[in-house]
Design a binder for these strands. Structure first.
Lengths: 219, 219
DNA sequence: ATAATTTATTAGTCTATTCTAACTTTGTAG
DNA sequence: CTACAAAGTTAGAATAGACTAATAAATTAT
């Protein structure tokens, strides 16, 4: 059984290996807000448990086993978020911190029951896929709003940041999953977009646009 | 903020001070399955946080502050048990271990929401009172089945042990909260009782009878 | 291709929580 | 009132996880 600390390292490793599969000690240290030497020693420990592949001075890689165990934690996190929103009435901006704690609960029946009560959902309240029980994660083919072009009509489908601040910002602009967005203009310098959300005109910074995943529904 | 470990000591202290208010290091050590020296040093720590009153070679006492913080943990435990049974469909024998973990979650809104969804319950699924937000705990005036006499008609109102084994035993005898029990005979030697539960006759050991709290409803 | 910068590792320390072994106090049985 | 058992404490060590300072390897930039 992995400790809470080990679980947090695994989760961070999975989160950081979206692209390259390989994660530097430095990135991991920054992500976890922990110093590099601490990370190095934890990598040795996780390697001895066959959860990561580790060699001195090389980036780290989750093993199949490590990837699976990490995905199960993510599964518990996202099921919890869904449960908090759908069954307990929380807003999508309130659930991250609670789920961050509940994801470490050791009780398969607890999460199975959530899953069942929710009707075996595929997506969490932020549009991220809920890994299945074997640890498989399937993302739909979304694109970042920041990669779309002027005139496109888009549907907001997922957000890449679940912090309360970011989600409160989206709430204040009436941006929810499913909301339609039309790109009226793009500022070439910094990627700021002028968009239409329903009848409202809004300005979204480049940073915000990078965190919004959309489906292109331009007719 | 208290650590998970500290919280477990506080809870144990509260559980053991039902009668005398004072708890011996030895009892605490046994209850937590931890050696006495470890307990001693934790008592010094809790004393420095003004959670217990501690003097060398004397039994320990929760301070008002300690009692309150312990009760809040018990509140979270019992609200969770109630939620698991009422809103998630678990049996009363399945919820203790899960609640044991969830009671340490740091999120007042999470427990407030449970409370609200449950309609502000006063009792948990085992008949124990749920402490209020200030930490006040009010037990109804139950008696132990083991203290009742032949011919009494009783209503099972609470159980003093929430272990899965014990509760599965009660399930197998159709004993639930609210069930009526008539004492047909008491074995003087060991307190074994012959009882009627509905139309069924059952034998309950003295140990079991001590764990059952009842209301006397003899006509 | 060599210096400068960044990244990673080693070595040693710290805190929280636990343990064992040895000693001290308290309380009780004659 | 003593002697012994039970309860409690002290001292010293272990483990997990985190840190800092110093060193080493790898990368980048001239």
């Amino acid at each position: 059984m992995n400790s809470l600390t080990e679980e947090n390292y695994l989760k961070a490793l999975l989160a950081l290996s979206t692209n390259s599969d390989e994660v530097s000690i430095n990135d991991l240290a920054k992500h976890l807000d922990i110093k590099m030497p601490t990370v190095t020693s934890m990598m040795k420990k996780l390697a001895s448990k066959k959860l990561v592949q580790y060699e001195s001075y090389k980036p780290v890689k989750l093993t199949k086993k490590g990837k699976q165990e990490a995905a199960i934690i993510v599964r518990k996190h996202r099921l919890t978020e869904m449960f908090l929103v759908e069954k307990m009435g929380f807003g999508w901006e309130q659930v991250h911190d609670i789920a961050e704690q509940i994801e470490h609960i050791k009780s398969p029946p607890f999460f199975d029951k959530m899953d069942e009560l929710l009707g075996f959902p595929k997506l969490d309240p932020h549009g991220s896929p809920i890994p299945d029980k074997t640890g498989k994660i399937v993302w739909k083919h979304y694109e970042k709003l920041s990669d779309c072009k002027k005139g496109d009509t888009l549907m907001l489908s997922a957000v890449l940041n679940s912090s309360a601040d970011f989600l409160k910002f989206l709430n204040s602009r009436n941006l929810k999953l499913g909301t339609h967005i039309i790109i009226d203009a793009i500022e070439p310098f910094d990627g700021t977009m002028s968009v239409s959300i329903g009848k409202r005109k809004e300005i979204l910074s480049g940073l915000v646009c990078e965190k919004l995943l959309v489906e292109n529904i331009t007719h």
